[in-house]
Simulated assay, not measured.
Amino acid sequence: MSEVKGDTLTHIDAEGHARMVDVSEKAVTTREARAEAYITMLPETLAMIVDGTHKKGDVFAVARIAGIQAAKRCSDIIPLCHPLMLSSVKVELVPELDSNQVRIETICRLSGQTGVEMEALTAASAAALTLYDMCKAVDKGMVIHTVRLLEKKGGKSGHWKV
Protein backbone atom coordinates (compact mmCIF):
# COMPACT_ATOMS: atom_id res chain seq x y z
CA MET A 1 0.00 0.00 0.00
CA SER A 2 1.23 3.50 -0.69
CA GLU A 3 2.22 5.75 2.16
CA VAL A 4 -0.01 8.81 2.48
CA LYS A 5 1.46 12.27 3.13
CA GLY A 6 -1.26 14.85 3.41
CA ASP A 7 -3.56 13.92 0.55
CA THR A 8 -0.80 12.46 -1.67
CA LEU A 9 0.20 8.82 -2.09
CA THR A 10 4.01 8.64 -2.03
CA HIS A 11 4.28 5.49 -4.18
CA ILE A 12 2.28 7.09 -7.03
CA ASP A 13 3.60 9.94 -9.19
CA ALA A 14 1.55 12.82 -10.62
CA GLU A 15 0.54 10.68 -13.63
CA GLY A 16 -0.61 7.79 -11.43
CA HIS A 17 2.43 5.59 -12.12
CA ALA A 18 4.02 3.48 -9.41
CA ARG A 19 7.42 4.63 -8.15
CA MET A 20 9.84 3.89 -5.36
CA VAL A 21 9.84 6.62 -2.73
CA ASP A 22 12.94 8.82 -2.64
CA VAL A 23 14.36 8.52 0.88
CA SER A 24 17.63 10.34 0.18
CA GLU A 25 16.62 13.35 2.29
CA LYS A 26 15.46 11.28 5.27
CA ALA A 27 17.61 11.12 8.38
CA VAL A 28 19.53 7.94 9.14
CA THR A 29 18.08 6.54 12.36
CA THR A 30 17.98 3.19 14.09
CA ARG A 31 14.85 1.38 12.96
CA GLU A 32 13.33 -1.85 14.17
CA ALA A 33 10.20 -3.84 13.38
CA ARG A 34 8.60 -6.92 14.96
CA ALA A 35 6.11 -9.14 13.16
CA GLU A 36 4.42 -12.46 13.77
CA ALA A 37 2.73 -15.31 11.95
CA TYR A 38 1.09 -18.53 13.09
CA ILE A 39 0.75 -21.93 11.48
CA THR A 40 -1.78 -24.39 12.85
CA MET A 41 -1.35 -28.10 12.24
CA LEU A 42 -2.33 -31.55 13.44
CA PRO A 43 -1.06 -32.45 16.93
CA GLU A 44 0.94 -35.33 15.43
CA THR A 45 2.70 -32.98 13.01
CA LEU A 46 3.66 -30.56 15.76
CA ALA A 47 4.86 -33.42 17.97
CA MET A 48 7.06 -34.71 15.12
CA ILE A 49 8.64 -31.27 14.74
CA VAL A 50 9.16 -30.75 18.47
CA ASP A 51 10.51 -34.28 19.03
CA GLY A 52 12.90 -33.93 16.11
CA THR A 53 11.59 -37.08 14.43
CA HIS A 54 10.62 -35.46 11.12
CA LYS A 55 12.41 -37.28 8.31
CA LYS A 56 13.48 -33.96 6.75
CA GLY A 57 15.51 -33.05 9.83
CA ASP A 58 15.41 -29.92 11.98
CA VAL A 59 12.33 -28.18 10.60
CA PHE A 60 12.70 -25.16 12.89
CA ALA A 61 16.33 -24.57 11.84
CA VAL A 62 15.40 -24.57 8.16
CA ALA A 63 12.40 -22.26 8.75
CA ARG A 64 14.60 -19.87 10.75
CA ILE A 65 17.16 -19.68 7.94
CA ALA A 66 14.36 -19.18 5.38
CA GLY A 67 12.99 -16.27 7.41
CA ILE A 68 16.38 -14.61 7.67
CA GLN A 69 17.05 -15.09 3.96
CA ALA A 70 13.61 -13.71 3.04
CA ALA A 71 14.17 -10.54 5.10
CA LYS A 72 17.47 -10.02 3.29
CA ARG A 73 15.79 -10.46 -0.11
CA CYS A 74 12.58 -8.53 0.61
CA SER A 75 13.20 -5.95 -2.12
CA ASP A 76 13.38 -8.79 -4.67
CA ILE A 77 9.91 -9.96 -3.65
CA ILE A 78 8.01 -6.72 -2.89
CA PRO A 79 8.38 -4.47 -5.96
CA LEU A 80 8.68 -0.99 -4.40
CA CYS A 81 10.71 -1.90 -1.30
CA HIS A 82 14.18 -0.44 -0.99
CA PRO A 83 17.10 -2.85 -0.79
CA LEU A 84 18.28 -2.51 2.80
CA MET A 85 21.48 -3.25 4.66
CA LEU A 86 19.97 -5.07 7.64
CA SER A 87 22.12 -5.17 10.76
CA SER A 88 20.07 -7.87 12.50
CA VAL A 89 17.34 -10.39 11.69
CA LYS A 90 15.95 -12.69 14.38
CA VAL A 91 13.41 -15.44 13.82
CA GLU A 92 11.92 -17.22 16.83
CA LEU A 93 9.69 -20.28 16.43
CA VAL A 94 7.66 -21.21 19.49
CA PRO A 95 5.56 -24.38 19.51
CA GLU A 96 2.22 -23.89 21.26
CA LEU A 97 1.20 -27.45 22.06
CA ASP A 98 -2.15 -26.54 23.63
CA SER A 99 -3.36 -24.95 20.37
CA ASN A 100 -1.46 -27.14 17.87
CA GLN A 101 0.35 -24.24 16.31
CA VAL A 102 3.72 -22.59 15.96
CA ARG A 103 4.09 -18.88 16.66
CA ILE A 104 6.74 -17.21 14.56
CA GLU A 105 8.11 -13.86 15.72
CA THR A 106 10.63 -11.87 13.72
CA ILE A 107 12.67 -8.78 14.52
CA CYS A 108 14.53 -6.79 11.87
CA ARG A 109 16.86 -3.91 12.66
CA LEU A 110 19.08 -1.41 10.84
CA SER A 111 20.42 2.11 10.82
CA GLY A 112 18.98 3.67 7.72
CA GLN A 113 16.56 6.01 5.98
CA THR A 114 13.52 3.75 5.71
CA GLY A 115 11.68 1.29 7.92
CA VAL A 116 11.97 -2.48 8.11
CA GLU A 117 8.32 -3.46 8.53
CA MET A 118 8.14 -5.28 5.21
CA GLU A 119 11.32 -7.21 5.98
CA ALA A 120 9.91 -8.40 9.32
CA LEU A 121 6.59 -9.39 7.72
CA THR A 122 8.35 -11.15 4.84
CA ALA A 123 10.57 -13.07 7.28
CA ALA A 124 7.55 -14.26 9.28
CA SER A 125 5.70 -15.27 6.13
CA ALA A 126 8.65 -17.16 4.64
CA ALA A 127 9.30 -19.03 7.88
CA ALA A 128 5.63 -20.10 7.99
CA LEU A 129 5.69 -21.12 4.32
CA THR A 130 8.84 -23.16 4.93
CA LEU A 131 7.20 -24.98 7.84
CA TYR A 132 4.30 -25.75 5.52
CA ASP A 133 6.60 -26.93 2.74
CA MET A 134 8.60 -29.23 5.00
CA CYS A 135 5.50 -30.78 6.58
CA LYS A 136 2.97 -30.87 3.74
CA ALA A 137 3.65 -34.55 3.03
CA VAL A 138 2.24 -35.45 6.46
CA ASP A 139 -0.29 -32.61 6.94
CA LYS A 140 -1.79 -30.84 3.92
CA GLY A 141 -4.41 -29.12 6.10
CA MET A 142 -2.04 -26.74 7.88
CA VAL A 143 -3.22 -23.14 8.03
CA ILE A 144 -1.00 -20.06 8.02
CA HIS A 145 -2.74 -17.14 9.71
CA THR A 146 -2.46 -13.88 11.61
CA VAL A 147 0.53 -12.48 9.76
CA ARG A 148 0.85 -8.98 11.19
CA LEU A 149 3.13 -6.19 12.30
CA LEU A 150 3.49 -6.02 16.08
CA GLU A 151 5.73 -3.01 16.53
CA LYS A 152 7.92 -0.52 14.71
CA LYS A 153 10.48 1.90 16.13
CA GLY A 154 12.49 4.70 14.65
CA GLY A 155 12.16 7.23 11.90
CA LYS A 156 10.04 10.34 11.75
CA SER A 157 6.81 8.54 12.66
CA GLY A 158 8.36 7.20 15.86
CA HIS A 159 7.14 4.23 17.85
CA TRP A 160 4.03 2.23 16.95
CA LYS A 161 2.82 -0.90 18.73
CA VAL A 162 -0.24 -3.17 18.46
Rank of each mutant, 00 (worst) to 15 (best):
S2Y: 00
E3I: 15
V4Y: 07
K5G: 08
K5Q: 14
G6W: 02
G6V: 07
D7G: 13
D7I: 15
T8Q: 14
T8F: 11
L9Q: 01
D13L: 05
A18R: 13
R19G: 08
V21G: 10
D22K: 03
V23Q: 13
Y38T: 05
I39H: 05
T45M: 00
A47R: 15
I49W: 00
G52N: 09
T53N: 13
T53Q: 14
K55R: 15
D58S: 06
A61L: 09
A63L: 08
I65A: 13
I68L: 09
A71L: 06
K72I: 08
R73I: 06
C74N: 08
S75G: 10
S75F: 08
D76S: 12
I77S: 04
P79H: 04
L80V: 06
P83C: 13
L86Y: 09
L86A: 07
L86G: 11
V89C: 15
V89E: 13
K90C: 14
V91T: 11
V91S: 09
E92S: 10
L93W: 03
D98T: 15
S99V: 15
N100K: 12
Q101K: 15
I104Y: 07
I104E: 01
E105F: 12
T106I: 05
I107E: 14
C108Q: 01
L110W: 11
S111Q: 15
S111R: 14
G112R: 04
G112K: 08
E117L: 00
E119Y: 03
A120D: 06
A120Y: 04
A123F: 00
A123R: 01
A127D: 00
A128L: 09
A128E: 04
T130G: 07
D133C: 02
M134S: 01
M134N: 00
M134D: 00
C135T: 06
K136Q: 05
A137Y: 11
D139H: 03
G141E: 14
H145W: 08
T146R: 14
L150G: 02
E151W: 03
E151Q: 09
K152A: 12
K152L: 12
K156P: 03
S157I: 04
G158L: 07
K161P: 07
K161H: 12
